[in-house]
Design a protein around this nucleic acid. Structure first.
Length: 284
DNA sequence: CTCCGTGCCTGTGAGC
DNA sequence: TGCTCACAGGCACGGA
């Protein structure tokens, strides 16, 4: 499941291989990701345009094309982008093929077909979905102070659903949220307004360092994730709690637990991440 | 306000 | 062996 670090790696690689290339044709094999837009219309808008730059916001990938067109791609659960320097036959789950000048190809694959493509023409960037989300942790405006501000706006929420909500912070998914909370020593069910200033500082640092470590490891390939050349990441080897139910905590030796929270499997160490907190509240 | 379930999909793996 | 079913979890949406 691509989260911020995986999407960041994909976007860096896309820029390396696709910048300046012209899209000479598009072949759509399944259409769910087009969300009702006909493949003919979609293809007509994209064909002939040059890929000027690829950016990321949260988990969204944005292809900035010539003529002020923007192709927005969200990989959701199992979406993948594969780059080939030559012509390759579509596979079982290939939903779209972008043909590029020079014979390069970009294939979109998606087993579960949850991914979405959206096309924007001459749009005010700030009105686009990816820019209506919360702070992106890799952008300059994500600071301890701005983090404190959004926490203050959500005093009653549990910290895990808070971190997963893209309107607060853009890019956190289930894996990096559980790993961040473990590294910060915070129970996923702790209420935002129960956190001490010290804990918030720890959380802020853990969030950034976990995401950055994820990027350095080129992502987490626990099941589906591959980079645009089909390579696995390495961060799965550094997971401390995610999918480690029943195993020993690498820090204290207690047993890692799993609970359903916010509708997702949630992994934590009950000893390193205690639920009870009798420290002074940060907001007072 | 916050949380929870459902739908969108299909592969994997546990248990019978 | 082969079947069923929970699970995987990003996001939108409706309801408690």
């Amino acid at each position: 499941m691509p989260e911020l670090p995986e999407v960041e790696c994909i976007v860096r690689d896309l820029n390396k291989y696709l910048k300046g290339k012209k899209i000479t044709g598009v072949f759509f094999i399944f259409y769910q990701m087009l969300q009702g837009v006909s493949p003919e219309v979609f293809g007509r808008e994209i064909r002939g345009e040059v890929i000027q730059e690829i950016k990321r916001r949260g988990k969204y990938i944005l292809f900035f094309l010539s003529n002020d067109k923007i192709l927005e791609v969200h990989l959701r659960m199992t979406g993948r982008l594969y780059y080939y320097s030559n012509s390759v036959a579509p596979e079982k789950y290939t939903g779209a093929v972008f043909y590029l000048d020079g014979g390069d190809e970009l294939h979109y694959q998606d087993i579960r077909k949850f991914g979405t493509f959206r096309l924007h023409v001459k749009q005010d960037l700030s009105q686009l979905k990816p820019y209506l989300l919360g702070l992106d942790p890799l952008e300059d405006n994500f600071t301890l102070n701005s983090f404190l501000e959004i926490l203050k706006r959500n005093p009653g929420r549990k910290i895990k659903p808070f971190l997963l909500d893209q309107k607060n912070i853009a890019g956190m998914g289930n894996i990096y949220t559980d790993e961040t909370l473990f590294r910060a020593g915070i129970h996923p069910q702790r209420k935002v307004n129960s956190l001490t200033l010290q804990e918030i500082k720890k959380l802020f640092e853990s969030l950034l360092s976990t995401l950055k470590e994820g990027i350095e490891c080129r992502g987490t390939s626990v099941s589906d994730y591959r980079d645009i050349r089909g390579q696995e990441g390495e961060f799965q080897k550094r997971l401390k709690v995610y999918r480690r139910e029943g195993a020993y905590c690498l820090r204290c030796g207690s047993t890692i637990q799993r609970k359903l929270l916010a509708g997702r499997g949630t992994y934590f160490c009950p000893s390193c991440q205690p639920l009870s907190c009798n420290k002074r509240r940060w907001e007072q």
